[in-house]
């Protein structure tokens, strides 16, 4: 510690390290440990019983499935939008650009109500879709739609800088070597943007996992069918079953943590490959 400190050129190493650790401990680790403390009353047996129940398992599956689908859709369209914003010059670009951030700022309950109004059986889009036999409101499809909305900016905002950094020389090199536009995209551009796309995907996925406000209105919240994990937690809390609620939360956290760890691992592997470290 002392040795590291001595050779630092930039001042404030000790101060910034201390602040970072203290802040992380206070803001992140303390509430998490309270969660574990709360649920520890149940013991392993009780925890296992709650996590193993049909209703909880189904809600996990629904939450993970819809989050994954939403993040996947966002990865595709977020990439296209980011590409559009970086490469195409058009009037009003600034406005479109700031439109992307709106889901960040929108209170989730508001977006939930708005989505329900559009996709419910007699809504603007809900009615024609219903005529086609696609039910959106009160189905996993609706849940996915809500998650897509809140997750989009994450993908766009992570991919955008990566695309901006991409030298046009690389594309020109590929073109001069005889690659067409499509092959240039698949073999040169996409692999180079992939790490940031994966980061964006992970962030959108994480956001969707924890989403509550915008989902509950459109989900219909039918147990075993359209009940997401965060809703189940609220339900437990309303029944004063704090230990049960925290148990579900811990299960959710563990799964999310493992998945995010995996995605981040893949992401850092692919970016290491790019940088060749």
């Amino acid at each position: 510690m002392n040795a590291i400190k001595k050779h630092r050129v930039l001042p404030g190493f000790g101060l910034s390290l201390g602040t970072s650790l203290f802040y992380l401990g206070l803001i992140v680790l303390l509430p998490l440990s309270a969660l574990i403390f709360r649920s520890s009353a149940l013991g392993w047996q009780g925890l296992w019983e709650i996590l193993g129940s049909e209703r909880v398992l189904r809600s996990y599956r629904l939450t993970l499935g819809t989050s994954f689908a939403a993040a996947g859709v966002n990865a595709v369209f977020g990439f296209i939008i980011a590409w559009f914003l970086v490469r195409v010059k058009f009037p009003g670009k600034k406005i479109v650009d700031s439109l992307i951030d709106l889901p960040f700022a929108l209170p989730t309950a508001v977006s939930g109500i708005a989505l329900t109004a559009i996709y419910s059986r007699n809504g603007w889009l809900g009615a024609p879709l219903e005529a086609l036999g696609i039910k959106v409101a009160f189905t996993p499809v609706g849940i996915t739609f809500a998650m897509i909305l809140v997750g989009l900016p994450f993908v766009v905002r992570t991919v955008q800088p990566a695309l901006e950094e991409l030298e046009t020389e690389l594309e020109e090199a590929a073109l001069s070597l005889g690659a067409g536009r499509w092959k240039t995209f698949c073999r040169v551009i996409f692999p180079m943007v992939l790490p940031s796309l994966m980061t964006g995907f992970a962030m959108a996925f994480a956001r969707a996992l924890g989403e509550y406000g915008s989902v509950v209105f459109i989900a219909g919240n039918m147990p075993m069918k359209t009940e997401i994990a965060s809703l189940l937690i609220i339900t437990k809390l309303e029944q004063y079953d704090y230990a049960g609620a925290t148990a579900i939360a811990i299960g959710m956290l563990a799964i999310s943590f493992l998945l995010l760890l995996l995605i981040n691992g893949l992401q850092s592997w692919s970016s290491r490959r790019l940088k060749g470290i």
Partner: peptide, 19 residues
């Protein structure tokens, strides 16, 4: 088009595909 002219182009900053 550039790809059909059969020119070899070498860039100042190499423009190698990093991946």
């Amino acid at each position: 088009q550039v790809g059909r002219r059969r020119v070899g182009f070498v860039f100042q900053h190499y423009a190698l595909f990093r991946h």
